[in-house]
Design a protein around this nucleic acid. Structure first.
Lengths: 188, 188
DNA sequence: ATCCTCATGTAACCCGTTACATGATTAA
DNA sequence: TTAATCATGTAACGGGTTACATGAGGAT
């Protein structure tokens, strides 16, 4: 690589996953996508439409370097961190800049407006429980599937299990309460 | 209004908040933004750049109707739901289509990769706790500030308090564990 | 006078998903 | 031979934020 792009300012959102994954030895775009879908999807997603262009950008900026590693006639490019890439990853991990946190939860929004339409609250809480039960099961599979797990992924998984677990419990309790209230009104 | 736009398919994400808010009697773009920031921000945000254009679109589609209501020379447009708008809101509330759920949590991502850099896990968990403690406090203020609260908003608030509360507890426990482990390694 | 809040709006970006296109390899 | 998986990529679109512009009204 002879052309190196500007200062690189700070890492774009997707660059953060990619650098981290490459550092862990996940080497191709395809593999990164697999791993993301399996392990970080529930709190940090990424699509091919982001991954491949970003790999290019990171190489242009000199943070990763790729080389061709075909299987027969099937092309594959594998990447590794350059020293600059390692430094950038380290800088991000050590920085105490505000941590991005974004949630968009349609179930909660429906719940918020549920007064407008009788029955909506109860139905929404049920749907919400089912959604998080599915999520919870997937995380449990992940936990069971992976034999030993390094600390980082284990911590992230714990949080996922904890949150979904809490939500499921809350939904159950709330369903009972709402169902009871509905009956009361039926009697009155 | 004489021109009504196409079928309207289904409501855009931002349209969902707007219809809900207008139904609750929140009437101008400015007011909607205020209310969103105060009450739904932590699970569903909206910016002026979305709100004003969307109000136009919804009026074009015949779901809301606005009229001018200036204070002196200061312009203001207030909206209310049309019958079609009420129907659209109701349809959304009653629909059991998959509920969108999106989370992007940089703290969890850092945690996931924290093995690469010693000390990162502990520092990240601390930062995470502080973030959710702030969030928790804001929600408590909201709870205290609002006298009576209708069911919907109360339920959403409970979830917010519950989740942040759970996360804070988890962070505290994990901080202790990680700190203990760090000391152990210092001794070994 | 000055500053904050009320009030509306837009243009330039950023980020991201979806859907598609392409083709090799492997398993049924 | 057919389908699934491996592997890379892009174009079109959707949705959203930020920053800016504008100006009236009320409070200090």
């Amino acid at each position: 690589v002879s052309e190196i792009a500007p200062p690189a300012a700070s890492l774009s959102p997707t660059a953060r996953v990619i650098l981290g994954m490459v550092a862990r030895g996940v080497r191709s775009g395809y593999e990164i996508k697999q791993l993301v879908d399996k392990s970080t999807r529930h709190f940090w997603a990424a699509s091919y439409g982001q991954i491949y262009p970003e790999l290019r950008r990171l190489e242009t900026e000199g943070l990763i370097s790729g080389r061709s590693d075909p299987s027969g006639a099937r092309a594959k490019t594998v990447y590794e961190l350059t020293p600059e890439g390692e430094a950038a990853l380290e800088a991000w991990l050590l920085s105490d800049a505000g941590l991005l946190y974004e949630l968009r939860d349609e179930a909660m929004l429906k719940l918020f407006f549920s007064d407008a339409e009788p029955g909506t609250a109860l139905r929404t809480v049920r749907a919400m429980r089912e959604l998080h039960e599915r999520k919870h099961e997937q995380l449990q599979l992940l936990e069971a599937g992976a034999g030993h797990m390094s600390t980082g992924p284990a911590l992230a998984l714990q949080i996922g299990l904890g949150i979904t677990g809490w939500l499921i419990d809350w939904c159950k309790a709330t369903e009972e309460r709402l169902a009871a209230e509905t009956e009361m009104q039926g009697e009155a």
